[in-house]
């Protein structure tokens, strides 16, 4: 079958029946296919996910049915698990493609990875839509520092902060990006970013930080959903919050507050019920 001999409208019809990872794979086959996929419109996708965990990068999309569909994974070449590998070019970058995994894995030959990851990001964005919102999920492992790409302005952020250096990097980054709708932070290091107004105005904030107290964030929160995990909280914090809410002095946007406490001792439930 000569796919490229079909009229453009037919090519686009066929591509919309393919899973995103297959569209991505097809885009690697030649410059013509790359350009073709860039000019198609994939309407059913509502978000692009960019996940980094240590030296691994994964791009996926979320469709209208809220399914997360993997597109491409990028790993160091030393992690090649199969002898079978195929060379490919992605936006001018040579890469090996490991076809054994569920979706395409590109094995990077050289370091640093960031410029190549950016090229692949640009290619994914060109296929599935530059205007789509992003969800950045960035986690570290013991050997690696936090990596948050500066060229992505996400609507949704999930970040793990393990060191002071990570905390500073995250703080700088969050100040630079436009206001996200959703922030999740897992922080094992002490971080000071709670002073940043973006945390107060975000619609949904999910925070896990045993070094923080609810007073760091709750009094200033203007969003709708707040989940505090392992935060230090006293009954006085809760009473103050309830008082302000009941007397219309604050928290009028709030729809949900969930506080999971690390320690429950000294919590007077009767006082709160009053």
């Amino acid at each position: 079958m000569k796919f490229l001999k079909f009229p453009f409208v037919v090519q686009q019809e066929i591509l919309r029946f393919l899973d995103p990872n297959l569209v991505f794979n097809l885009s690697l086959l030649s410059s013509k296919m790359g350009r073709l996929t860039h000019s198609c419109v994939f309407k059913g996708i509502k978000m692009i996910c960019y996940n980094t965990t240590g030296p691994h990068f994964t791009f996926s999309v979320i469709n209208q049915e809220d399914e997360v569909l993997g597109i491409v994974s990028i790993r160091p070449r030393r992690e090649l698990r199969s002898e079978i590998k195929r060379n490919a070019r992605v936006s001018g970058v040579d890469a090996d493609v490991d076809p054994v995994t569920n979706y395409t894995t590109i094995l990077l030959k050289q370091s640093p990875h960031e410029p190549i990851v950016r090229k692949i990001h640009d290619h994914v964005a060109a296929i599935f839509g530059k205007q789509l919102p992003y969800w950045i999920s960035s986690h570290t492992n013991s050997q690696n520092k936090l990596f948050i790409p500066s060229y992505i302005k996400p609507k949704r952020v999930s970040v793990e902060v393990k060191s002071e250096e990570d905390a500073n990097k995250f703080d700088d980054w969050i100040q630079m990006i436009p206001q996200p709708n959703h922030i999740t932070v897992i922080a094992s290091a002490a971080i000071t970013v709670w002073d940043n107004p973006k945390f107060h105005r975000v619609e949904t904030l999910n925070m896990m930080n045993p070094n923080a107290t609810t007073q760091d964030i709750l009094p200033r929160f203007k969003g709708k959903y707040l989940v505090l995990n392992r935060a230090y909280c006293t009954d006085l914090h809760v009473v103050e919050f309830l008082h302000e809410w009941q007397t219309n002095e604050g928290f009028q946007n709030i729809k949900l507050v969930d506080i999971f406490m690390q320690f429950t001792t000294g919590f007077e439930q009767a006082r709160i019920r009053e």
């Binding site: 079958m1 000569k2 796919f3 490229l4 393919l18 899973d19 297959l22 794979n25 097809l26 690697l28 086959l29 030649s30 013509k32 296919m33 195929r86 490919a88 493609v97 076809p99 395409t104």
Partner: peptide
Amino acid sequence: AKDKTPEELRIIYGIPT
């Protein structure tokens, strides 16, 4: 195209290099 590698896709869809 299901479960096909890039090179298998090249053959099925007749896409030249």
